[in-house]
Design a protein around this nucleic acid. Structure first.
Length: 592
RNA sequence: GCUCCCGUAGCUUAAUGGAUAAAGUAUUGGUCUUCGGAACCAAUGAUGGGGGUUCGAUUCCCUCCGGGAGCACCA
């Protein structure tokens, strides 16, 4: 077994991933070339160094390329082309490599033997795909905490981006060999709820008036907006809202009935959305279950000298660590978000035995919050928390016209977006309800996932949710094409049939062939960088190449070996699309 | 004021320090006697400004400009 270290992106360096837990590849093409390249480098006197080896962006530069010769000019005191030639001359002859080229400034380009690639493709066509392993510790166990909508509020398109990202991260890490625990932390106490409940208590309409889930959620949203308004403008009601907030924290029976019922509305509403987008959770955590333990842990931290009293509150003084100062227990004696986080961490790290890592999928404005709480946890119990917590930043979904805010009433609800997309699909194309639903979810999820998590999305319905070009429906359409062809292929490809020896491929066949085998590597990279967009981009590239191949090269009308090869390429493309889309949390359809 | 993130074609986005900066969309023109036109081909069009490190910078460093976020009792 070779251990293969993948370079972590800058954001990942703070994970302190130990090399032996990185990626363990089972002898892939790349490892074989790397090994022989290393041998050649020793031979020419460059010593034991790790050379770069990548797929060139342009396929005319071969399947793999290294720029190591350019980097060795000083050390070897030779010009790069000379060094490149020496590397090529000393590279051990192996069947895998058909050709080595030396190019301009000093690149060494490797061309893989077509026979090998065809063999790979045949494996993929038989759905025999092995992903590289990516482990973050010896337990191979990771918690991914995502979605986290707060009760009594709308599930908006920002949450939709979160849940799409979180779900994809979960599936990718699972594919990379980990046991993944899905959790979801929801705020069901706090001022936003007090505002909402205050308004309901003081309104004329009884909550029993609202029957459908839709009406209930709409009612909650309106109540919150009004409560928010009076909180800001009326000092007297502000005090009453603060009282209600305290009652919720203290689980005062006078407010519990209303709180429980409205909270349940929210939870049912969220369950419906989770089902709709194909997510589920192993454990839902709630702020309300953390109040008591949060206070206890803060007291404990205070006794240890980690937290201190300041202006009636209990705070963490971050200055000596270069961090912000933040409040853990406010001057009313209630635990803040920070205080409760200590109790959450304790639960999360004991409910499922030992974890290698806990990944929190959360927007960037909570950086300061996480830096501080992670620090306090680590000081509280280094053995338990050291290097275990990670804040995976995903960025906001903003509107072209500006930020969404409930105050402005321009919050775009997740369900609305899915419904609108579905409607648009059904207006433009003939397809049944199930297919339209799958396509809508695919279009929405893909539109979020194709962008890197660290980029803000400027959302515009007509432009963001596309059904053509680089879109979810395009990938599904490509998959449907493959299914259609494969169904019509009366003589299924016989995998025993010798495809090898048919090396005279045309450009389109070759391009598909030379893209298919990247798939496991891409999944490994996506896992190591927590970057679903790498898979999205790869699938799109593959789909484009397949569609061009499909356009120019008849599959079913071809004869003999050519037909078999083309069918194998088609089947392999289908499998990569299906498996890749699964990793993105997107279902395929056979007809559309 | 301090800290962090982001500035790539009209718009939305790609690009482990590598080769001619890649797509979608929009605009214009083309492809159907052919396996699904939600497709394919072509044209037009870009790294915010200025320094630096390097054989090589969209990428790393400095600075300026522009956008976003955070910095004590919200979550």
């Amino acid at each position: 077994m070779h251990y293969y270290c993948m370079k972590a992106s800058s954001g990942l360096q703070e994970l302190n991933i130990r090399p032996d837990f990185m990626l363990s590849y089972k002898a892939m093409e790349k490892d074989k070339i790397k090994k022989n390249l290393a041998a050649a480098l020793v031979k020419i006197g460059a010593g034991n160094i790790d050379a770069d080896l990548e797929h060139p962006a342009n396929s005319r530069f071969g399947d793999y390329s290294t720029s190591i010769a350019l980097k060795l000019t000083k050390q070897l005191k030779k010009n790069p082309l000379e060094i490149a030639q020496m590397i090529a001359d000393n590279f051990p002859k192996i069947d895998l490599v058909a050709k080595i080229d030396i190019v301009k400034p000093g690149f060494v380009n490797f061309w893989l033997a077509t026979d090998y690639l065809i063999n790979d493709t045949r494996n993929i066509a038989e759905e025999n795909i092995t992903y590289p392993k990516f482990y973050l510790g010896k337990e191979h166990k990771i918690m991914v905490e995502f979605a986290h909508p707060n009760t009594h509020k709308l599930f908006h398109i920002g949450h939709l981006r979160n849940i799409s990202t979180g779900e994809a991260i979960v599936r990718i890490l699972e594919a990379a060999g980990n046991k993944v625990i899905r959790t979801n932390y929801q705020g069901d106490v706090g001022l936003h709820i007090a505002k909402c409940l205050y308004q309901i208590r003081n309104s004329q309409s009884a909550i029993s008036n609202y029957k459908s889930l839709n009406d209930k959620i709409k009612f909650l949203g309106e109540a919150y907006a009004k409560g928010q308004q009076t909180y800001e403008t009326n000092e007297k009601t502000k005090q009453e809202i603060l009282d209600i907030n305290r009652m919720i924290y203290e689980q005062d029976p006078k407010i519990m009935k209303l709180w429980k019922e409205t909270r349940q509305w929210s939870l049912e509403y969220y369950e419906e959305i989770y089902r709709r987008v194909g997510s589920h959770f192993d454990r839902l955590y709630f702020e309300s279950e953390l109040t008591k333990r949060g206070i206890e842990l803060c007291r404990q931290a205070q006794d240890m000298g980690l937290l201190e009293k300041s202006q009636g509150a209990i705070v963490f003084n971050g200055k000596k660590y270069g961090l912000d100062t933040r409040v853990f227990i406010n001057s009313l004696g209630l635990p803040t978000y920070e205080g409760k986080e200590l109790a959450l961490a304790e639960k999360e790290f004991s409910d499922f035995d030992e974890l290698d890592k806990n990944i929190h999928v959360v927007t960037p404005e909570q950086k300061s919050f996480f830096n501080v709480t992670f620090k306090v946890e680590q000081l509280l119990d280094p053995k338990k928390y050291d290097n275990k917590q990670y804040h995976l930043v995903y960025e906001w979904v903003n509107l072209r016209s500006g930020k969404m805010s409930s105050r402005e009433g321009n919050v775009i609800e997740g369900n609305w977006l899915l419904d609108e997309t579905k409607r648009k699909i059904q207006e433009s194309y003939k397809c049944d309800d199930m297919v339209a639903e799958t396509l809508a979810v695919a279009a929405v999820k893909y539109s979020f996932l194709k962008t890197g998590t660290e980029n803000q999305i400027a959302f515009d319905f007509n432009e963001s949710i596309s059904l053509e070009g680089n879109s979810g429906p395009y990938l599904l359409y490509t998959y449907v094409r493959t299914q259609s062809v494969l169904k019509k292929a009366v003589n299924q490809v016989s995998h025993d049939r010798d495809l090898i020896g048919n090396n005279d491929l045309n450009t389109e066949e070759s391009d598909v062939l030379r893209t298919l085998y990247h798939f496991p590597e891409i999944v490994g990279k996506a896992a190591a960088n927590f970057a679903p967009n790498l898979i999205a981009n790869y699938l799109y590239d593959l789909a484009q190449k397949f569609n061009l191949f499909y356009q120019k090269q008849p599959i079913l009308k071809a004869k003999g070996k050519t037909r078999n090869l083309r069918l194998t390429l088609t089947r392999a493309t289908a499998n990569v699309l299906k498996n890749g889309l699964y990793l993105l949390g997107i279902n395929t359809v056979d007809k559309m």
